[in-house]
Design a protein around this nucleic acid. Structure first.
Length: 508
RNA sequence: GGCCCGUUCGUCUAAGGGUUAGGACACCACCCUUUCACGGUGGUGAUACGAGUUCGAAUCUCGUACGGGCUACCA
C-alpha cells in the first residue's frame, strides 16, 4: 500500500520567477506526473515585509505559460487548503506549543537590539558571525534563563516573543537525499532557529514541516540553498510527526550565473533573461524581460531547463513534455551546480521552432509581425511564410526581421551591393525577365528559376551574378531564403512591381 | 571564520574499476549555397592537484586546492 505521491512547489511571492524556480517546478511536476501523483502549489507568504503585490498572480501565469499547472493551489483549490500560508497562520501555533511542552523549543524575549548586541559582543576572529545557539542561549532572555513565574507574567503582559527550537548539543542528524546520498550534520553547529515570529507568523522552518505533513507531501524537492537548514526540518519532523511520515528529500543543484547563484536581483545584467516571463516590479518600477518575451517557446524552455542537470543517459537532447514525464528520474539529476549557457538555450529554442509545425506557430508569429501596428494577414499566406522562414529563426522575435519584407516592401535597399557591377546588359535582362514573368504559366519556384537561368544563358550572363541584384530588389538586403522561393510567395504582381521599382534607381 | 555540498573539454554532460574518455552548445576548417541561415563532413579541446587501495582508477579512500550554498523574527 504505497502512499500516493504528492509533491509541492512552495515559492514566496516576492518577485520574478527565475530559471532555478521553474526548474524546481518542472522536476516536481515531472516526478508527480510520472508517478501518477499530485503536484501542489503552496504560497509561502509568511513574510509581510517582503510581500510584493502581483507576484502571486505572476507565478500562476508563469506556470500556465510553461504548461506546468498544479493540481492544487490557492486558485485551483484542493482538499488540503488553504494553500496560502498567511491564511493558515492559526494552525502553526499549536505545533510550536507542543514543542515547548516537550522541551524542544522555548520562548525568547530578546529585542532586536539585544540580538544585535549579542552578535557584536561575541564576534571575534574565530567567530565572525555568532549565532543564537547552545553556547549563548543561557546568556539571553528566554524561558530557559527566566524563572517560570516570570515567563508566565511576561506572556500575560503580551511581551513580544518568538519561539525558538532548542537544538540538541551533541547529536548527529542524518538523512538520505535522493540526489546526494547520505548527508549528516552535527547539531551543535546549527543555531536555535526562530520557529514562530513575534507577529505570530511561522518562519519557513516551522511552516514547511507542518504544511508538508498536513498536505501529505511524500517527496520534497527544493534548491540546494536549503540543505544547510535541513537538520532543523529533520528534527522538527522527529519531534512533531515522526520520521515515518517525513517526505523523501531531494536538494536540487543550483543554477549558476556567470558568478555564483543566479540572483533575482541582477536579472538584466547578464545579457540574457533570468525570469520565465517579464517581471514588472511594482516597488521599483523596474521591468525585467523574461524568456517568453525574448521569444522562447514554452516547450523549448522546459526542455532546456530539464537538461540543465539531468539527462536520460542516452544522447537525446530534445524532449517533449510527454517524453520528459516518461523518462525523468530524480536519481539521474546531477549533483553539481550548473552554469547557465544562453547560447545553448537559444539552440534548444531554434530546434523547437524548426520542429514545430506551421499551425502551432501561427499565433505567435502573427503577434511578432504586428509589432508596429496591426496588419491584416491572410491565413494561407502566413502559413507559406512561416514554412519558408522558420528554419532560420532562433527566437520567435526573429520572424519579424526574417519575413517582414514579404508583407511590406523594404524600407531601404542595399544598393551598394549591386551598383558597382551594374550594367546595361543586366538592366536589359531584368526588363526581359519581367516580360516573361508577365506571361509565365505555373508560378512556382522551379519555373521561376528555370526561366531565370535560361534567359541568363541566352544573354550570356552568369545567372549567379544576377541573383544578388534580384535578391536586393525583392528583399532589400543580403539575407533571407532562396530568391525564387521568395518570388513565389510574393506572387507575380508584387514581384514585378518590386523589380521595376528598384530598376529606376539603378538606371539613373 | 564555521558547517554543508560540489569539482570530466570554454559551457551542459556521458562513462558507476579495464573505452583511442563519448555527445551537445560554442569555436575553427571544408562541402552545399554566388545572399544569410539550415544541413553535411572533419578539427581544436577535459578527468583540479597529491597520496593511497588495486594487476588495473575519471570511477573507491584520504589529504590539499578551487568553486558554491548557508551562517536573519527572508524564503
Amino acid at each position: 500500500m504505497a502512499k500516493k505521491v504528492r509533491v509541492r512547489f512552495a515559492p514566496s511571492p516576492t518577485g520574478g520567477l527565475h530559471l532555478g524556480g521553474v526548474r524546481t517546478v518542472l522536476y516536481n511536476y515531472l516526478f508527480a506526473k510520472k508517478n501518477g501523483g499530485d503536484f501542489v502549489l503552496r504560497i509561502e507568504d509568511t513574510d509581510q515585509n517582503r510581500y510584493v503585490a502581483g507576484a502571486e498572480q505572476y507565478i500562476f501565469d508563469c506556470l500556465q505559460w510553461a504548461g506546468l499547472e498544479p493540481d492544487e493551489s490557492p486558485i485551483h483549490g484542493g482538499p488540503y487548503g488553504p494553500y496560502r500560508q498567511s491564511e493558515r497562520k492559526d494552525l502553526y501555533r499549536q505545533y510550536a506549543d507542543k514543542l515547548i511542552k516537550d522541551g524542544h523549543a522555548y520562548y525568547a524575549f530578546d529585542t532586536p537590539e539585544e540580538l544585535e548586541k549579542m552578535r557584536h559582543d561575541f564576534k571575534n576572529e574565530t567567530n565572525p558571525s555568532p549565532q543564537y545557539d547552545h553556547s549563548v542561549r543561557m546568556k539571553m532572555r528566554n524561558s530557559l534563563t527566566i524563572p517560570g513565574e516570570e515567563v508566565k507574567k511576561l506572556l500575560e503582559e503580551k511581551t513580544r516573543f518568538v519561539i525558538r527550537i532548542k537544538m540538541p548539543e551533541n547529536d548527529t542528524v542524518s538523512f538520505t537525499d535522493m540526489i546526494r546520498g547520505d548527508v549528516s550534520f552535527d547539531t551543535s553547529v546549527v543555531d536555535d532557529k526562530v520557529l514562530l515570529k513575534a507577529d505570530g507568523m511561522p518562519t519557513y522552518h516551522l511552516a514547511v514541516v507542518v504544511d508538508d505533513y498536513l498536505m501529505k507531501i511524500t517527496h520534497a524537492f527544493r534548491g540546494e540553498e536549503w540543505l544547510s537548514s535541513a537538520p532543523v526540518h529533520i528534527l522538527l519532523w522527529k519531534y512533531l510527526f515522526g520520521y515515518e511520515h517525513m517526505p523523501a528529500w531531494a536538494h536540487l543543484p543550483l543554477i549558476l550565473g556567470p558568478s555564483g547563484k543566479l540572483s533575482k536581483r541582477d536579472g538584466a545584467k547578464y545579457g540574457y533573461p533570468v525570469f520565465a516571463m517579464t517581471w514588472n516590479d511594482p516597488k521599483t518600477g523596474e521591468i525585467t524581460e523574461g524568456f517568453r518575451e525574448k521569444g522562447f517557446l514554452p516547450e523549448a524552455f522546459i526542455n532546456l531547463l530539464a537538461l540543465l542537470g539531468w539527462n536520460d543517459g542516452t544522447e537525446q537532447e530534445i524532449f517533449s513534455k510527454e517524453e520528459l514525464i516518461e523518462k525523468f528520474s530524480i536519481e539521474r539529476v546531477h549533483s553539481g551546480g550548473a552554469k547557465f549557457d544562453y547560447e545553448k538555450a537559444k539552440w534548444f529554442n531554434h530546434e523547437w521552432i524548426k520542429r514545430s509545425d506551421v499551425q502551432s506557430l501561427k499565433y505567435e508569429v502573427r503577434k511578432q509581425l504586428s509589432r508596429d501596428g496591426d496588419m491584416a494577414i491572410d491565413d494561407a499566406f502566413l502559413e507559406k511564410v512561416i514554412a519558408l522562414v522558420k528554419d532560420r529563426c532562433t527566437l520567435l522575435t526573429d520572424f519579424y526581421d526574417q519575413s517582414i519584407f514579404l508583407f511590406k516592401a523594404p524600407g531601404q535597399y542595399d544598393l551598394d551591393a549591386i551598383k558597382p557591377k551594374w550594367s546595361a546588359a543586366k538592366a536589359a535582362f531584368f526588363e526581359d525577365y519581367c516580360n516573361e514573368l508577365q506571361n509565365i504559366t505555373g508560378w512556382n519556384t522551379e519555373t521561376l528559376e528555370t526561366k531565370f537561368k535560361e534567359l541568363a544563358a541566352q544573354k550570356n550572363i552568369k545567372a549567379g551574378e544576377l541573383q544578388l541584384p534580384f535578391r536586393i530588389m525583392l528583399v532589400g538586403g543580403k539575407f533571407g531564403p532562396g530568391v525564387f522561393a521568395i518570388a513565389e510567395v510574393l506572387g507575380k504582381e508584387e514581384t514585378i512591381r518590386r523589380i521595376k521599382h528598384i530598376f529606376r534607381f539603378l538606371n539613373s
